[in-house]
């Protein structure tokens, strides 16, 4: 392709403009405000003063909150592993389906998005109630897997659809078993899709609070619940912001480490 943005600055600017404006308005500005809040002090009921204090971060690093973060990480890891284990075969089945069927199957994958998340979570309360799983961590993981599945199936499908089938055939022709072909050929070739899916599932799950609130029971608490309370009943926005940003730093760190590891391998 000969076209590039240097040749058509005006066209590119007008195409990218709305997206960039939306990003600035909905992400950069609020995040900057939250970052400032996390270094601020609560003065009275609705007043906050920016003082550059680290008090909120110091409090966020107390063992009490690190323990809550640890529980959130466990729940998110369990969710990610279960989601990938279910999504991979589904994505493979769709990629191997006749082209005409694929559209319908992909539509079915995104169908849950047509209903509101809250409604779907309440529906799970009704489904889980007779099983005895309701108000346990298992219920939280189940609902998070359910919510996350489309985010894993779609990138995995994109990867599997592009996979050169001749490589699989060659592997089988050369005497490798189906399992070996999967493990030594298919899995390494689709690793980028798996990594993308893992990040897309793990990151939003780590910050979730709705599922643990509604399905979690007395003992389940994710860091999202603590953050939510800081913005509501505790009315401590600086502390809530510091906790949120701690999650941002941690997630950015994990993603950076993952891409570093990948770069090293190449």
């Amino acid at each position: 392709m000969n076209e590039n943005w240097r040749k058509h600055r005006g066209a590119f600017a007008s195409l990218l403009g709305p997206g960039l404006a939306m990003l600035a308005f909905a992400i950069v500005v609020p995040m900057a405000l939250m970052l400032a809040l996390s270094f601020s002090e609560q003065r009275g009921l609705t007043q906050v003063a920016f003082t550059g204090t680290l008090a909120s971060y110091a409090r966020a690093l107390e063992p009490l909150y690190l323990g809550v973060v640890a529980q959130s990480v466990w729940i998110s890891l369990a969710t990610t592993i279960a989601t990938l284990a279910i999504a991979y075969p589904v994505a493979l089945a769709i990629a191997l389906a006749p082209p005409k069927r694929r559209d319908l199957l992909l539509l079915l994958v995104v169908l849950p998005f047509w209903t509101n998340l809250l409604v779907r979570t309440y529906a799970l309360i009704i489904v889980l109630s007779p099983t005895g799983l309701l108000y346990t961590p298992v219920a939280v993981v189940l609902s998070l897997v359910y919510v996350s599945l489309p985010f894993a199936v779609l990138p995995l499908y994109a990867q599997l659809e592009r996979l050169d089938r001749r490589l699989l055939e060659a592997s089988r022709d050369l005497g490798a078993s189906a399992w070996t072909t999967f493990r030594r050929v298919m899995l390494p070739l689709t690793a980028p899709g798996l990594a993308a899916a893992a990040v897309l599932v793990f990151v939003p799950t780590l910050g979730s609070f709705l599922q643990s609130d509604l399905l979690g029971g007395a003992g389940t608490q994710m860091i999202g619940n603590v953050i939510e309370r800081q913005f509501k009943s505790a009315n401590d926005w600086p502390f809530g912001s510091a906790l949120s940003f701690l999650l941002v730093y941690a997630t950015a760190g994990v993603v950076a480490l993952a891409s570093l590891a990948r770069a090293k391998r190449r």
């Binding site: 009490l64 603590v226 009315n235």
Partner: peptide, 14 residues
């Protein structure tokens, strides 16, 4: 005091 209440709840759940 609001903060004490909130911490109590966090500790109770944890």
């Amino acid at each position: 005091t609001q903060r004490l209440y909130d911490e109590t709840l966090t500790r109770l759940r944890a």
